[in-house]
Write a protein that binds this DNA or RNA. Structure first.
Lengths: 217, 217
DNA sequence: CACTGTGAATGCATTCACAGCG
DNA sequence: CGCTGTGAATGCATTCACAGTG
């Protein structure tokens, strides 16, 4: 990421593999599904099978955070799910998100239900196009990107998402940082400069496709 | 991804690190920019600095594919760019892409200029919503997803992109495979089953955010 | 018995460090 | 010189394999 798409300013935080953290989300999703099916316990083997990884991997991943399993039975679905939610920081926590750039991609991000479900709430959407300013998007009104940093600060934004054209990306990024965001997700295919205290994640669709083309040819 | 977002059915192809392949795209982008600036040669140090990685990494990555540098001078920008383009399979090659699901995200994908620039051309877009069928999107008309596999086959599609709701994803995936696609990029947060001969890449935005929340909290 | 949790072993990826070249 | 290309060393991540437990 990662893709590309991979974490940039990787804080150590007790030497937990980055890949493990990403899998935590997958475990969450699977456990949620199992919980709906009223499954009480699940073994590492079963969980692994559903996710297409090995059972040893599941046990190792979970062991980084403690001992949640019962010998001979597996993991208690409900309890493990709650625990992972807390570990991931999405349990009982609301993250304030700002979006810069309300084009097609930006609109898709605003509309994406998966974010709300996990406690990520858009509190600000800006666009440099005066045509778009004032339009409603969901429960938000698109605002001008003038004084972006002030808006970010006033709305107490934690995470900034950048979905603007490449050449505007760094400027938006700087404003986000000035406004005090702690993390940035960048969808523009620009290399962004951020201080080490700010988490940066790049998501680049073209890189996904190009990597694929390599393996295809 | 890879994010998750990571390659799934990783063919070996001479043991080149997957991470290296993803960086190839970054090198390409940087070289293209340098070429426009009329830069003749560039050193691994310079290239690395621009991309935020080490110079040893750059040299190692390139060395997997051959020896392109000149001692004391660095790499010839134009030649290296052409070579990498060939290696990535995007030089003089057109990839046919189909999109399933023309919601916000699907529309963003269709509109994304970066794909066209790199030789990825949408030749088919389908949606299960009859309201949308018949509407024009760029130079494409949205079609019904009935007989998707036949459409895929007839249009000689290489790569399928899935941007439909989670519960429709596997069905679309099966149709793509039946139609003969060689690779699938999945934007739905569903675990897809594919035969080992088909390349699968998952891009999951929620995972990106959740990983970030972990490091934030 | 069916499972977990984890040292030890393996397998990747990155970085070091330097010989060798233009 | 300044720079590449690459063995050797290090550092991560995954898997093996099994002692230990309810």
């Amino acid at each position: 990421m990662r893709h590309n798409g991979r974490l940039h300013n990787g804080r150590p935080r007790r030497s937990i593999p980055e890949a493990c953290v990403e899998r935590l989300s997958l475990y969450m999703r699977e456990l949620t599904q199992r919980q709906h099916q009223r499954v009480g316990f699940i073994s590492s083997r079963r969980l692994a099978q559903d996710l297409g990884i090995t059972d040893a991997q599941v046990r190792r991943d979970l062991s980084y955070f403690g001992q949640f399993g019962t010998s001979g039975r597996g993991y208690e679905v409900q309890r493990l799910r709650a625990t992972l939610g807390r570990i991931l920081g999405i349990q009982g926590r609301i993250w304030h998100v700002a979006l810069a750039g309300v084009g097609n991609l930006g609109s898709a991000l605003l509309a994406y239900q998966g974010f709300q479900d996990r406690g990520f709430v858009f509190r600000l959407a800006v666009d440099s196009d005066p045509q778009k300013v004032g339009h409603a998007m969901g429960n938000l009104t698109i605002e001008a990107s003038h004084h972006l940093s002030a808006l970010v600060q006033r709305r107490d934004i934690h995470i900034g998402m950048i979905a603007v054209p490449t050449d505007e990306a760094q400027a938006v990024c700087d404003q986000f940082i000035e406004g005090g965001v702690k993390a940035i997700v960048n969808f523009a295919s620009a290399r962004l400069d951020v201080p080490p205290s700010v988490l940066l994640r790049n998501v680049d669709l073209a890189i996904e496709l190009e990597a694929m083309a390599f393996y295809l040819s």
